[in-house]
Design a protein around this nucleic acid. Sequence first.
DNA 1: ACCTTTCATGTAACCGCTTGTGTCACGGAG
DNA 2: CTCCGTGACACAAGCGGTTACATGAAAGGT
Lengths: 336, 336
Amino acid sequence: MGITIKDVADAAGVSTATVSRALRGLPNVDSATRERIQRIAGELDYVISPSASRLASGRTGCVAVITPYIARWYFSTVLSGVESVLQSAGMDLLLMSVSTPDGQHRLPPAPRLRRRVDGVLVIALPPQDSQLQEVLALGMPTSLIGLSMPSVPSVAIDDVLAGQIATQHLINLGHERIGVINGAPIVSPYTAENDRYRGFEQAMLGAHLTVDPMLEAYGYFTIAGGEQAMTALLTQKVPPTAVFAMSDEMAFGAMKAMRAHGITPGKEISLVGVDGHDMSEFLDLTTVVQPVQDLGRIAAEALVLQLRSASPEIAGESIRLPTQLIVRGSTSPRRA
Amino acid sequence: MGITIKDVADAAGVSTATVSRALRGLPNVDSATRERIQRIAGELDYVISPSASRLASGRTGCVAVITPYIARWYFSTVLSGVESVLQSAGMDLLLMSVSTPDGQHRLPPAPRLRRRVDGVLVIALPPQDSQLQEVLALGMPTSLIGLSMPSVPSVAIDDVLAGQIATQHLINLGHERIGVINGAPIVSPYTAENDRYRGFEQAMLGAHLTVDPMLEAYGYFTIAGGEQAMTALLTQKVPPTAVFAMSDEMAFGAMKAMRAHGITPGKEISLVGVDGHDMSEFLDLTTVVQPVQDLGRIAAEALVLQLRSASPEIAGESIRLPTQLIVRGSTSPRRA
DNA sequence: ACCTTTCATGTAACCGCTTGTGTCACGGAG
DNA sequence: CTCCGTGACACAAGCGGTTACATGAAAGGT
């Protein structure tokens, strides 16, 4: 139905091989010939057939992005960074979510990746996740975003440090009874929340403060989760004077719970989050900002580079991006 | 390198044609043969090569989603609905943003669609957008989300009605000087903001209230845009007693501006938005909720249906989804 | 002046699957 | 007992590129 490479070849009076070389910028094509072919291809409005090209060359020019959520701030922001790079690189971005919008598990994406993409980018899937394991077992170029894992290239922040910075900020303000709003207590190393928690512990220990298990609460990484956890903390006999929430969205939920209890964040109780969520400025939340979009961007760049160089086993290195504490109204010195 | 259909055929002692038919559930295959082939394919861990299949059949099994933004709430939420459906339908989702994360224009996506996807889903691109025009000119099955346009199938809410409902709510509360925070004043029909504005006008006229141009302000569809617009309204000699913001994010910005002026939303000035943003409950914003995820879901379902039935010219109908006013603390009766 | 490179291009064999067209055996109708 | 319809498969021609290899002419070395 469409115009094929043969039509272009005939119109230019050359063979399809030459057209193929000319259009892809390969060497050994006379520049005059190349230009003529390009012109004719343009006039004919010729577009290469990806399927045919892929079949013949073995390369798909596709990268899959696998993510647990699409509609959450962190994930969509990473995604936008990834998309930006892949698009400029001329690669197709296949989006696959690991779970339904309702949070239910779905068919594992791994089988759908085989022979379909050249590389995979995985956003914040915990190392022990079975879906992630299957993807890694495919043995194709893969890098992780927002999570580090031994022997797999990744782009992430130093979560231990982030937790440390957030906690140290509260300590510097004179707080001693510091609570934590954490994700579900999964027994797994290498997750962001566990690293942040370790940073918290280190800061506390460094300041000779005790980590009180009574001041820890758990919930989902959502507003509702944070709200629930904060409510639990507030119903303690002696609530904390400051709280470290593992994410900004949890911190928002914590704010909501505080308000419901007549407490103003940054007055009676200080609150610090992690993320640098779009809304954090608006809500005057002190937070450890991470360069979320850059996470995606840099991971995509590294992957593209790896695919281009066709170095199969030179798995890229892991990259750590810096974070930054932004102090706002939700934290203040401990009241006397 | 991988296992091909030929390997399966040899192992099963049949021809590749039979394997192809058996694996795709086509008729005229003995059920015993089919099962044997399926079993062998499973044992061999055979996966069909998409490129080859696409080349031979002419169908790609891909749908492109074109969106102006990825990281904004509305767009990522629509996207999650779309992805959910496409994934269950076994179709690949190609994500393409029309602009960079910084908002700069990018190479038009249309050329990259040809021969690459079977259908296109476009999220909230205004009808006069050149990129949209190019996509439509491709003549492939396309449907629009969040925007209606004559002769192109779409899934959207009734934006006129949404504007009317929001405004009527303010009118019912006794407000007469009602301001509007609108998007940039583009001269184009069919955009969501223009329709919402028309709904606003209709409600005002229906209540015999005058639409005061001095009470209209413009800004981007972001927090910053809303903040800026609200600031403009607040510096009027006689500010409005109520404001209709075209989106929740603009309303958030308006709240920010109000606070900066020592005004509490819902007390001195009432505020209503449109969207049902995740944060609207948290911020106690009255809003006209639209089923954003369903927008994407239903559009994707319609497109899949159309592609399946292979009815090329039966462009699906346009679908209107309902909205719902949720009254919260940001609106209250006009003060005496 | 002759032989070897080098460069531009043509030839043709795939890449792995789909599908229209045959072929053959079987079974019921005449 | 022959004829024909039908179901189950096999055959083979594409689908539209890519690429190793062949070819021939021009350029360069001795």
